[in-house]
Design a protein around this nucleic acid. Structure first.
Lengths: 238, 238
DNA sequence: CATCGTTCGCGAACACTGTATGCGAAAGAT
DNA sequence: ATCTTTCGCATACAGTGTTCGCGAACGATG
């Protein structure tokens, strides 16, 4: 017998009907993993550390999850549970923009999410609910079903990319990267890139003290996001 | 002294001017890593395996590269070297579409690229050349420099996502995922998703024998790609 | 109440991973 | 021929995901 391909985790029953009952649940493990990722990043989510957070051994987790990737899928879907799916308004664009705005908020709450969405898109029960909701918002739209799904996928991908870019502002790696771009600009062989710096001089990123998240600072980015996404969506859905 | 933050790899000299000269080069190591990734995927690119492919020890690589991530950046930039940057035609959209088409071709040649582009976008010397080229194609365009850079980033991200979707067709994980969607559709609680399957019934993916890559099969996807990207680009650049 | 069938928890082990250290050897410069 | 600097790399360390196997725990059955 070859290596048996297990079905996706959502199709496997959580509890066996017989024998000793499990002491924990997928939800419990997922919550621990999410909390760990929120606090220390995705790389901190190792089987051993998640298990330790639950006060158990690493091997125990494999009673609930076939592989670490399964755990990541559970995390993604647990994030999808955070959507608040209000009934469609009838104006598809604003409905989609609302979903996208929520996606952005969720991804900002969980900085590890964009990377997951973009590298291993997976729809669990809650993700499926979101898709259903989007399709309902597009019910009256004349585009083909394939296009609508494409729009959904693109919306998620673009949002993830946008948030990743947003969060990179505080990142050290991004600064080093920008330093190289500046080096290239001053070297003379790339005039268009040099012009880029001339247009908007590099503001030295001094260790910024967070401004207690007053509204006005955010709203500019909010608008940029909404504008970008509505352009992308009207682009794809005509 | 705290842990010193090294600058990006492109700013560090490859060879020290004095002392015993190195036996290998970054290019050589990068080539070995790329070949390995092409053949066995990104996960196969471990320091030990790359070193073994070069007939050397793992620790030796650290004379050329400060960390594995540096090696990944080198790989990304070596892929960027595969662009053929023809002088701009004057029609910015077709110029950008040409770049995007090349990006897609490159990513299909190197299936590990989309994941890298999307999770750790980095511009090395060749990547910078591509950016310069795109900015030149957009020289006469009235959009702000920031928008142009945004368009470049979005172009790469969307292309990566598109190729990842294309390549997933052959993937086993994607099939299991589709199976779950079908399960949800038949469960009854998601009529819009069910309608999706009604519209385009699931063609059972029998182990397809590759049709020697005759043209007509491809051109349909080619058109879809061009259409999607031109919509996205005109969306962002007006 | 005892037995049975099944599942659970998990210590230990395996095969890896990225990276740090330290030292002998090599090579160009003096 | 010496000196200086770098190179190659064996070894070691602290982790990683995952498998195995076994004792214990439990619900159902007799």
């Amino acid at each position: 017998m070859a290596a048996e391909e297990q079905p996706v985790i959502w199709m496997r029953p959580e509890q066996a009907g017989v024998g000793r009952p499990a002491e924990r649940s997928r939800a419990e493990i997922t919550a621990a993993a999410v909390e760990l990722a929120d606090r220390e990043g995705l790389d901190a989510v190792s089987m051993r550390r998640v298990a330790a957070a639950l006060g158990t051994g690493a091997a125990s987790l494999y009673r609930y999850v076939a592989t670490r990737d399964d755990l990541l899928d559970l995390m993604t879907d647990s994030a999808a549970a955070e959507y608040e799916l209000r009934p469609p308004s009838g104006v598809w664009l604003s409905d989609l923009l609302d979903v996208a705005a929520q996606a952005r908020a969720i991804m900002r709450r969980h900085p590890w999410l964009p990377a997951l969405v973009v590298t291993r898109p997976s729809l669990g029960p809650h993700g499926v609910d979101v898709l259903e909701h989007v399709l309902e918002a597009l019910a009256l739209h004349s585009a083909s079903p394939a296009r609508k799904v494409e729009a959904f996928a693109l919306m998620n991908a673009v949002t993830a990319q946008f948030v990743q870019h947003e969060l990179a502002t505080t990142d050290a790696a991004a600064a080093r990267h920008a330093a190289y771009l500046h080096h290239v600009a001053t070297a003379g062989r790339h005039p268009r890139i040099a012009a880029l710096f001339a247009a908007s001089p590099v503001e030295p990123v001094e260790s910024v003290e967070p401004v207690e998240s007053v509204e006005p600072v955010e709203s500019a980015e909010d608008d940029r996001f909404a504008a970008l996404l509505s352009r992308v969506l009207t682009g794809v859905l005509g």
